[in-house]
Design a protein around this nucleic acid. Sequence first.
DNA 1: GATGAATGAGAATTCATTCAT
DNA 2: CATGAATGAATTCTCATTCAT
Lengths: 194, 194, 194, 194
Amino acid sequence: MEKRNKPKYKQIIDAAVIVIAENGYHQSQVSKIAKQAGVADGTIYLYFENKEDILISVFQEKMGVFVDKLEQIIARDLNASTKLGLMIESHFDLLASDIHLAIVTQLELRQSNHELRTKINNVLREYLKLMDKILVQGMNNGELDKNMDIRLARQMVFGTMDETITTWVMNEHKYDLVDLAPKVQRLLLKGMQA
Amino acid sequence: MEKRNKPKYKQIIDAAVIVIAENGYHQSQVSKIAKQAGVADGTIYLYFENKEDILISVFQEKMGVFVDKLEQIIARDLNASTKLGLMIESHFDLLASDIHLAIVTQLELRQSNHELRTKINNVLREYLKLMDKILVQGMNNGELDKNMDIRLARQMVFGTMDETITTWVMNEHKYDLVDLAPKVQRLLLKGMQA
Amino acid sequence: MEKRNKPKYKQIIDAAVIVIAENGYHQSQVSKIAKQAGVADGTIYLYFENKEDILISVFQEKMGVFVDKLEQIIARDLNASTKLGLMIESHFDLLASDIHLAIVTQLELRQSNHELRTKINNVLREYLKLMDKILVQGMNNGELDKNMDIRLARQMVFGTMDETITTWVMNEHKYDLVDLAPKVQRLLLKGMQA
Amino acid sequence: MEKRNKPKYKQIIDAAVIVIAENGYHQSQVSKIAKQAGVADGTIYLYFENKEDILISVFQEKMGVFVDKLEQIIARDLNASTKLGLMIESHFDLLASDIHLAIVTQLELRQSNHELRTKINNVLREYLKLMDKILVQGMNNGELDKNMDIRLARQMVFGTMDETITTWVMNEHKYDLVDLAPKVQRLLLKGMQA
DNA sequence: GATGAATGAGAATTCATTCAT
DNA sequence: CATGAATGAATTCTCATTCAT
């Protein structure tokens, strides 16, 4: 059986998310994560190369869910505008329903060093490529402006979503994030429409 | 004389930007900054409370230039769309002409801890308030959609700019950032137009 | 059946010699020895008390061969000078024909801690006592100087052999060790002759 | 001023010798050495690169005294036999009068890893080269056997001295080491004489 | 004001050994 | 007999900050 399918693997990943969210990136010692996971410090190293490997794996595992959801949306027989709306809603929903994860991805994991962030960006790239598929569909069927710079558009979409979520997290989730999804969709769509 | 007007104050601030850009946030020890500034380690503490204070001061000093430029733009007798364009161009231009600063603000300073980032956000808030003024002007004179959520709109504007700059920095400035300004303006404007 | 006569006992001893010679004393983890021996980590502990016990046993088992050979030489009807020569030759030969063992005894096992080295010395003492027998025979029958300090003489004999072998091992066996035996014998004999 | 001439440098070196002699190589943590030296842990790192650097420096500094003494002996207008005797006496005397040092060089430092021992051997080589000078002098002026293998002879000399000292240290200095010097000289000389 | 030597708290990782299966 | 997953104690080195000069 693959390491990543063993129960302790997921146990440690989940513990890491909680510990990082509650203590902050720089106060998340391996021993704290082990304690939260209910295993010995050394056990961590049976499942992960080193501390960095835990953090990358956290991102990979969790981002995997985002990618899966997005792939399902893209596979459906819908127009690009609708898909864009569903993507935003799905993205917001996943983070709103796991506030620990939201804190970790929007605030804490960004404190990591250059090397780790590069690895995280590689994971993120897959998600951004799926995003591009929606934009391409929209540009091809006339929903979106054929002449727009697709990279710029994607940066607007991701940047807006990211900024919206980060602001929500920093405001300690005082308002409902998912409620904002339709407004964000409309704003972005208007900017990109043909 | 105010500390911040003494030559060594600025000397240390500038040294910090260079050191952080060249070595990365986590490899920017106080002793390195002191050496770059040409002063003794202890001298740093005659001008700054502690290391965090240097970093906040870096952000304040440099952000001050952005605020000044933006205030000048707002004071001019122009419509909101034009001001938005000028703001983007000015913002892009300031970072494109100081790559060290771009690296520091877009990548390195974000690795700081929660507390420091909160303080940085307080400095940023002033800039965002000025941004809002442009949006309000546009909503009042009919250029922009009266019914849009202004906070969301501002998040789109800032998020898009931020994402665009970060991508440019991570791509090691292979292309001209300022050239993108008009396209970004058009994209954002379309999204917010009445 | 005695533990030391079971096949896995010898299997583990031999694995230890190889692993230590190839990886060095401090890089010879129990798990590596187990892997080399083709048994599980835990199995080691069915045959040995602890890691130290493996190392002492390595020395005991291998030293046993040296002792046996030396006893055979002493039992023969030869004068002391000849026996000394045969001893040196036999000693050099045993190590020259098992380079792994030579590395382990001359270099690696000396990195062990005080306690282990004391135990190893106890094993070695038996060998040194046999050496003394040759010297006594020579002093009694007039071959060797009757008035020499026997302990000092033995230290010269063993020290010279040891230093010669260690130098040979550290020079990566570039020359033939056994070829040196007659010269060493002559040198030592001259020093001790009546 | 050179680091090695500052008082704290020597203070730490001397502390290291005491701590290693009293606690053993593997129980000589940096913090123990710092405490013995009366400085903070971090201070150690102002004078030494890392722990290994302390140990090499111990050997270099102390071996330097041996080399100096031997150079003085060699420079004198004496025959080789006398020089050999003086060398042995000087070597024994230096160790007998600093039992901590004797323990460290004969027992503890030999537990160091391959890399460190290689560096130590480089320091030792200088000493052995001086030893060779005495042997060459003796071979040239007819005191010593012209045909002997000089490397082998040196290995006998050094091996005998080393074995004698180690035995003395392991016997906890029950007898006077320097008293043995003339006997050792005689034994070695006889072996090498023309 | 300026210096820079000294401080000392804090954390990732390894590996011999155990014991439930 | 044999296994191998789990354990957890133990240690070097960095660097922000101080303070005597």
